[in-house]
């Protein structure tokens, strides 16, 4: 009994800390120009690879750009891209998943076969190939990731709809002669939306990781934009002499991904508790 309470408290504490980090990072991303002490893209070769100073709190990179400012602007790129990818994915996945699950029939059959084929590829590889075809760049990266991952979410959402649509409140609405559209919007959507939210927050850390991985390979945002994965790639040649160049962006990725993963887990637990 006591253990259980402690566990709950701990999960609440984690929830608090992780949501504070998530909130802070979002703020950092939104208000990047306020927080950044310097212009993140200002090249100044005379100040290259400097240690921490009052003007450059974390030092400068190989082009003399302020690392702290680049880290802060990198938050904007990483989080902005990740939320955009997830948002666009959901805009495709939610309607399609609901349609396939609720209507069934040949549309559902076709949908499932498309899923089978697209999920036959490892998803990261398919995104890579799409970027290869479309060409590197932030817009193409977003496009490639959305085009690959919508299948997965649409399928999960279809499963959720399948389990909801046989429940009594939906059947009751049907008996009352409610139109399909109203049933979907008023009954099915509210029933699955919290599960979808948990799904999104559980996975957004993974999206941040994938984006930074693609940027690390040089396929994401192009110079001079700032992104953590790209910063690590840039620091490759200098990391023997200036390891901090590589250390900071990696820490940022780790912190953000851990925070989002914890947040997602806490959210899931909290929603589960409510159901009990």
């Amino acid at each position: 009994m006591l253990k259980n309470v402690k566990r709950q408290l701990l999960s609440h504490k984690l929830m608090m800390i992780s949501s504070m980090i998530v909130f802070f990072m979002t703020l950092l991303a939104l208000l990047a120009p306020f927080f950044a002490p310097n212009d993140p893209n200002l090249v100044d070769i005379t100040h290259k690879l400097q240690g921490p100073s009052s003007k450059f709190p974390l030092g400068t990179d190989h082009l003399g750009r302020d690392i702290l400012s680049r880290l802060i602007y990198g938050t904007r790129t990483s989080l902005g891209t990740a939320f955009l990818v997830m948002g666009l994915t959901m805009m495709i996945s939610i309607p399609l998943g609901i349609y396939a699950g609720f209507r069934g029939g040949w549309g559902d059959y076709l949908f499932m076969r498309i899923c089978d084929i697209l999920m036959a590829f490892p998803s990261f590889l398919l995104s890579l190939a799409l970027i290869g075809i479309l060409g590197p760049g932030l817009v193409n990266l977003i496009l490639a990731m959305v085009l690959v991952q919508w299948v997965f979410y649409a399928r999960v959402i279809r499963g959720m709809v399948l389990s909801v649509k046989e429940q009594n409140f939906v059947l009751a609405a049907k008996v009352c002669g409610t139109s399909r559209l109203v049933i979907v919007i008023k009954h099915i959507l509210p029933a699955i939306i919290s599960q979808v939210a948990v799904l999104v927050f559980m996975d957004i850390g993974g999206v941040v990781l994938a984006i930074s991985g693609l940027s690390f390979l040089g396929l994401g945002i192009q110079p001079p934009g700032a992104e953590w994965g790209m910063m690590i790639n840039d620091s490759k040649q200098f990391f023997r002499n200036a390891p901090s160049l590589m250390l900071y962006p990696g820490m940022m990725i780790l912190i953000v991904v851990v925070a989002f993963n914890l947040f997602g887990e806490a959210l899931r637990d909290a929603l589960d508790l409510r159901r009990e």
Binding site: I232, M246, N261
Partner: peptide, 22 residues
């Protein structure tokens, strides 16, 4: 387990190179 799923592989690789090789 928590750290390992949140760790960017390329960064972990560089950390290993830096500490164990260099």
């Amino acid at each position: 387990a928590f750290v390992s799923v949140s760790m960017p592989a390329f960064w972990f690789g560089f950390l290993l190179i830096y500490f164990l090789s260099v």
